[in-house]
Amino acid sequence: MRYHLVLRTVAKILIPLIMLFAFYVQFHGDYGPGGGFQAGVIFSASLILYGLIFGLAALKQVIRPWVVRVMLASGVLIYGGVGVASLLLGGNFLDYGVLAHDPVHGQHLGILLIELGVGITVAAAMITIYFFFAGRKTTKQ
């Protein structure tokens, strides 16, 4: 893929836009369609596009495999941590009302945090799967 000039140029323009759209979907999920799942998939799609065009080695330079592994675990931990935090503040598990002085604000904060956790885990899982599927090709050759 080293000589595909058009593909490389278009991808360089598109990848930041895809990432921006992923963040929009992530943080606008409260107001419109979207949320953590979709945002995670779109974000990972931008990185996978990079990997498809510039190669797996370049992608591993951009985002190290151990970073992806940490992301994979930290998303679930953020989600569970919000639940434990609401427990410690005197509510039920995953009852976001106690996270702020106003229950509605607490709900907003809780939903924002857990959607972030969902997004991080989904993105990391997709990138992990791509890493290992694409990595097997190089081990076979």
Partner: peptide, 28 residues
């Protein structure tokens, strides 16, 4: 109760928070 305009999000993340936690665990 939740005050989020997108009701799907409020059901998914707040009322059904346990389910979504389970889904994230599945993806993990």
């Amino acid at each position: 109760e939740v005050g989020v305009p997108n009701m799907v999000t409020s059901v998914l993340a707040s009322y059904r928070g346990f389910d979504t936690l389970g889904e994230v665990a599945v993806i993990f």
